[in-house]
Design a protein around this nucleic acid. Structure first.
Lengths: 249, 249
DNA sequence: GCCGTTTTTGCGGTTTTTTGCTGGAATTTC
DNA sequence: GAAATTCCAGCAAAAAACCGCAAAAACGGC
């Protein structure tokens, strides 16, 4: 087994189970624990996982328990949410993914709005539920503890049956060459299904993530209709995206 | 269990219950009290909790006085949850409904337990998600804002496809003549489906609701295998139920 | 193919971390 | 004030991490 291959396997295991033990991995892959340790160290250096004594934890594991509420980017996300909310009209069917930006969007919805929101994200649904006039449809399947959304074939099959008016996706990375990319296989599958099942695709992200790349592709730029960040749309950063046919707000 | 993981669990417990006892934690996680004490000390050094003699307090608890809203029945539910949790074995498939008692059950699960929980209740799933070794399957459909569970034909169809080992239902009313009864049509449909899809049906309720009736019937007493309340099982109140073949714990 | 270089991997020995335990000090509780 | 807890310091065993080092594998140029 190649080193890269092995590390990819380890990363997948970490993302899947939120935690791995060096001893277990060494046994599973049939290499010495030292090698596993070195792999974990490298992955940790790249920021992919968090190494701890005895094994490693997924990054999101820490997010669950040690929520570091970065006030700075939180305000960014609020302005993004405001812009996004203004696109929604009464009686629309809206498909949304997960992530903190989407939760912020849920909080920013005007109370008078009447619409149907469809999502597999538990934190997002929790917010939609508090809204007086919104119908909420929850997409069921296995819950990914990492991303707190439901993932799997069942969920994808349900999404495929829909044709929503809008689809809001919080994205982790976007650049001119690779389009939207992400780092969790299962989540990518869900996002793919979502953007195929909607008339309009709206991507939300803080500007920091523009022009960055992650290992797995979600879709090319051609699938995106609107891109929303906290910056004004005339920022020179967006020029290539606008030329590629994306509307920036 | 990894050290970080254990500390995360402790922190979660502290934030959840506002206070923890070293002795309880040591028993729950199955490590020595010294280890717990060292963990608490480290978490306190990081400013995450406040360490006190015998255990630790959450930061918020220290500021606020006693916000003990209805501690009385809350404690009842905790003892019910303890009894219920003791029935679950490793690798079981467990179907659960919604309600505060079920949420309490979710919080009472021992951290070492490995099992698969299936539910349509959003608050319950939120709790299951925090558990390190539990797989969570979410039943999707339209979200009922009242009961915070998913209801509808889609959900029922999914539940029908299952055959779980245990089914835990928090119930609103039970009496000898009408069996289990409830007051929300949609929720009743879900509960009916759930108890049909499980090998064993366990009903959880505070004793107060025993011998009360609600407008819509969920099922007769014959469908119930086990009944759990906060009272000891030899309370005379249970005699007719035991005679009807229900095991009371 | 061949040979030198670099990378990767496993191993032995040492160091560090973690954890439980013991005995005595400190603290709470009645 | 006495009994029961809880805390603490230090120790010991086990596990994990670290540090070279050398064998093995992969690579690259010829």
């Amino acid at each position: 087994m190649l080193k890269k291959e092995r590390q990819a396997f380890i990363l997948h295991q970490v993302n899947l189970h939120n935690r791995v033990l060096s001893s277990t991995l060494s046994h599973e892959i049939n290499v010495s624990e030292d090698t596993i340790r070195r792999d974990l160290q490298e992955l940790a250096d790249e920021g992919k996982i968090i190494k701890v004594h005895g094994g490693a934890l997924s990054h999101s594991f820490n997010q669950i328990y040690y929520p570091s509420n970065n006030v700075y980017s939180h305000n960014h996300k609020k302005t993004i949410a405001q812009k996004a909310a203004s696109l929604i009209r009464d009686n629309m069917f809206v498909l949304t993914g997960g992530g903190t930006t989407i939760v912020e969007l849920a909080r920013a919805l005007p109370p008078a709005l009447r619409a149907t929101f469809i999502s597999g994200s538990i934190p997002a649904v929790l917010e939609y539920m508090h809204h007086p006039n919104i119908d909420v449809i929850l997409i069921g399947d296995k819950v990914s503890k990492n991303s707190k959304i439901t993932v799997g074939g069942e969920a994808i099959a349900r999404i495929r049956q829909l044709k929503a008016d809008l689809c809001f996706l919080g994205i982790n990375a976007i650049d001119m060459d690779h389009g939207i990319t992400d780092n969790d296989w299962d989540v990518v599958q869900i996002k793919k299904a979502m953007l195929e099942s909607s008339k309009q695709v709206i991507c939300l992200t803080i500007a920091e993530k523009i022009n960055s790349v992650q290992p797995i592709q979600v879709c090319g730029l051609d699938k995106i209709d609107i891109l929303i960040t906290e910056l004004p749309p005339d920022d020179p950063m967006f020029e290539p995206y606008i030329r590629a046919g994306i509307k920036v707000i």
